[in-house]
Nucleic acid binder design. Structure first.
Length: 510
RNA sequence: GGCGCUAUCGUCUAAGGGUUAGGACGGAGCCCUCUCAAGGCUCAAAUACGGGUUCGAAUCCCGUUAGCGCUACCA
């Protein structure tokens, strides 16, 4: 499968392109990237950004690139990186090329000093922990006074003397120029250079900043469309200036509305807990594609009424025209941590699966719950529970009685039918015991026999069936009775009915 | 504070000058029915506020309010 190509394999070689290929691809081939920084697990908002990039790439027959933005050595951890891969692998979408910024530091350093030599950057020797109060005053925040105007000689002298500095971009604000670009989602954007601050390119430890490394990489790997969260919309003006200083044409931009919490705040692990991690949805028994489908519907629509869509349908329908501009709330509460619509969409995808496919997914879940799972029986059970589970994780609690040797304890009062009493339950179960011992053990045969029994006893169908259901399933709600009996099997049915009768007897004797 | 972005049912969204403002989730009710589901039908539920422009505004413009983002040697 093409999508599998880019899957991360620990120890595997990352995909790459040769310079020759690059020139060929440059010829208007769409190239997009997802660029997470490994400072935590894969956030659902990041996952959605990845998905939109992927959809656009596939739609345009372009290239999907994964780039790890790990320029901040202080904050990045291997554990975070691994959990991001876990999340991406679960989504099962894949990528075509891979880059890691920590492998490419020389590229950024070289580019930064080129920008400096061209006069678009200057050394700022202000100590790292300098008082920030100055910045909040009007105008003062644009740059640190004095440093911008330092002569080249003085700058070189202080640098040679070992004084630490950050390399800062020189925004051409005195020109009064207005930077503009057309965002594929948000439309025409404009900002005066007078309102753009001198941002850092290189830290005092020599490491590049996000803005710098990101732009240098985007230029180097020939990204054609930057598709990212709307939180970068304001940063884009800086990036355009940097692209120009680097001497390259800026790519196109498409910013995506953000995913937010029900109270309007941004999703955070501290405040909102595990709902912000994609792994939560895997662990909750979601189908990866169902969750992808759900995320797509947050901030995008196919311009018709479709909700449940296949991967191919999403690819075919995707465009930035369909992306809207306001942030989308992920609907969850403390009691109900999963968005109800996500749950519904998951159930829709489960219902649409073939029984063997679903059974294959259910098997490990049931085994994990401690059941010995026979494949033949699993297929039959799957058909019966398919419309009764919303997630894979629902299966053990819905299908337990098909696999357990011994039923979980239940209240014998549940055996008593509507408008009936213990005597009626007793009568029903005795009669059923006889019928089940001799009836043809298929759902048709069982239905014929048990309906005849109900008539013979002068009972309504429900009054006849409910005690049997409870005796065999251990609860009032279960799949259709005759199919269920058939799958449970004659011996187990008779045994459980016998146990139910014993429970009724001991109740009455009290 | 400065700059930028956004604003339709509780939530996700459609309608980009003329509709009884549509669909979906969730909620309520009914039907189907051996229970539970699934499915079908019905109901409640929205254009933040104020000004314009126009014969006509959810839609265009301005303002207000609210939310979000950027304003780091985080990304």
């Amino acid at each position: 499968m093409r999508q599998k190509q880019g899957r991360y394999r620990p120890g595997g070689r990352p995909a790459s392109v040769t310079p020759d290929e690059r020139d060929r691809l440059k010829f208007q081939m769409v190239r997009v990237r997802f660029a997470p920084s490994p400072t935590g697990y894969l956030h659902i908002g990041s996952a959605r950004t990845f998905i939109f990039n992927w959809l656009f790439a596939r739609r345009q027959q372009g290239t999907m690139i994964l780039r790890i933005d790990d320029t901040d050595v202080e904050r990045n951890t291997q554990a975070s990186l691994d959990s991001i891969y876990d999340g991406l692998n679960w989504l099962d979408l894949g990528w075509d090329e891979f880059y890691r910024q920590s492998d490419r530091f020389e590229l950024y350093t070289k580019a930064a000093w080129e920008v400096f030599e061209k006069g678009h950057a200057y050394r700022d020797f202000t100590p790292m922990n300098a008082a920030p109060e100055e910045k909040s005053d009007s105008g003062g925040w644009l740059c640190n006074p004095g440093m911008r105007e330092l002569s080249r000689e003085e700058s070189d002298r202080r640098a040679a003397a070992g004084e630490p500095f950050v390399l800062r971009f020189r925004v051409p604000r005195e020109t009064g120029r207005v930077v503009t670009f057309k965002d594929l989602v948000y439309g025409d954007q404009a900002k005066s250079t007078a309102d753009i601050e001198d941002f850092a390119l290189l830290r005092s430890n020599g490491a590049p900043t996000y803005h710098h490394a990101s732009c240098v990489d985007d230029a180097d790997i020939r990204i054609t469309h930057i598709v990212r969260g709307q939180d970068h919309l304001s940063n884009t003006f800086k990036h355009i200036l940097l692209f120009e200083a680097l001497g390259v044409e800026p790519p196109l931009f498409a910013h995506l509305p953000l995913l937010i919490a029900p109270d309007g705040s941004k999703l955070s692990k501290r405040r909102h807990g595990p709902v912000v991690s994609v792994m939560t949805y895997r662990d909750a028994g979601f189908l990866p594609h169902a969750y992808v489908n759900f995320l797509c519907l947050l901030g995008w629509n196919p311009k018709d009424d479709r909700e449940k869509m296949s991967r191919q349908e999403l690819i075919d329908a995707f465009s930035f025209e369909g992306v809207n501009r306001s942030n989308a709330v992920v609907n969850f509460t403390e009691e109900d941590p999963i968005d109800p619509k996500a749950l519904w969409l998951n159930s829709q995808h489960i219902y649409a699966m073939s029984v063997p496919d679903l059974a294959a997914l259910l098997k490990p879940v049931l085994e994990l719950a401690g059941f010995a799972v026979d494949d033949g029986r699993l297929l039959k059970v799957t058909a019966l529970i398919q419309e009764r589970i919303k997630t894979l994780k629902d299966a053990p609690s819905v299908a337990d009685f098909f696999f357990a040797d011994q039923l979980a304890p239940y209240d014998p009062a549940e055996l008593i039918p509507q408008k009936g009493d213990g005597a009626m339950a007793h009568k029903v179960l005795e009669r059923a015991k006889e019928s089940l011992a001799t009836a043809e053990f298929t759902h048709e045969g069982l239905e014929t026999a048990l309906r005849a029994d109900a008539t013979a006893l002068g009972l309504k169908a429900g009054q006849m069936f409910q005690p049997i259901r409870v005796a065999v399933c251990g609860r009032k709600n279960a799949p259709p009775l005759f199919e269920t009996l058939e799958v449970v099997g004659r011996d187990a049915c008779l045994k459980r009915i016998g146990q139910a009768l014993a429970m009724l007897n001991s109740q009455e004797s009290k």
